[in-house]
């Protein structure tokens, strides 16, 4: 099934707008004074969770592509990967600006002392490594190693969830949901499961062809 080029362009623009929308919404809440007495922390926590959503969205593209064979999903992988990086950088900026008050010496000491911040920084470094090598020139230069490097995303997922786990302490409900989504996305990559995805599509197709 071929999708016209103009539709694909529209699709990429739509994804861009959807990824940008939460940031605009949270900023709007802050501007309206509707984000509570600590707007910096509001942004910090929301953008932190948003980073995980972006990562989940990125990781869902491969299974979705297998399931539907629509090339639109592969087409937005780099964009969503870069959005994940952008959210993670914004999350770190919120921490540095609104929690540490831009006291950079404290940022240094906190990074080496607090395990959950070390884990978060490692995840961010992984995203940066993938972000700077996401262009075509790097793909060509790195060749086969490019794929290996970008498997870092699985490590980033694990580190991100661990970072989140260390932040919550009294109720694991929300974290469990995030962990379950992460685990589900990994499960879809296990070869026996991944092989079923295209078959599932065939099956749906056949059933449609033979009604009743």
């Amino acid at each position: 099934m071929a999708t016209p080029r103009s539709t694909l362009t529209l699709w990429r623009v739509a994804v861009f707008c959807i990824a940008l929308a939460p940031l605009l919404y949270w900023s709007y809440q802050v501007a309206l004074n509707a984000a509570g007495p600590e707007p910096g922390r509001y942004l910090l926590l929301n953008i932190g969770q948003g980073t995980l959503w972006m990562l989940f969205a990125t990781l869902s593209l491969t299974p979705l592509g297998k399931l539907t064979r629509w090339k639109g999903f592969a087409l937005i992988r780099r964009q969503l990967g870069l959005w994940t990086l952008a959210y993670a950088v914004a999350h770190l900026l919120c921490y540095a600006l609104f929690i540490l008050g831009l006291d950079l010496s404290r940022l240094g000491s906190e990074i080496v002392r607090r395990p959950y911040i070390i884990v978060g920084m490692l995840a961010l470094l992984g995203l940066v490594a993938m972000g700077v090598t996401s262009n075509r020139a790097s793909m060509r230069r790195l060749g086969k190693r490019w794929k290996t490097l970008h498997k870092l995303v699985y490590l980033v997922l694990a580190l991100g969830l661990l970072h989140f786990f260390w932040v919550v302490r009294a109720d694991l409900g929300e974290w469990s949901l995030y962990a379950a989504i992460g685990a589900g996305l990994m499960l879809l990559r296990l070869p026996p499961v991944a092989r079923q995805l295209p078959r599932l599509r065939q099956q749906v197709k056949r059933e449609r062809r033979q009604p009743g």
Binding site: P37, E38, P39, G40, L97, I99, G101, R114, Y116
Partner: peptide
């Protein structure tokens, strides 16, 4: 606290431009 410093605090309400540390 093992996860953060207790040397300072953020006096609320604060704003993005002044975290009141």
């Amino acid at each position: 606290h093992p996860r953060w410093s207790q040397a300072t605090e953020r006096r609320l309400p604060n704003s993005l431009f002044n975290p009141h540390i």
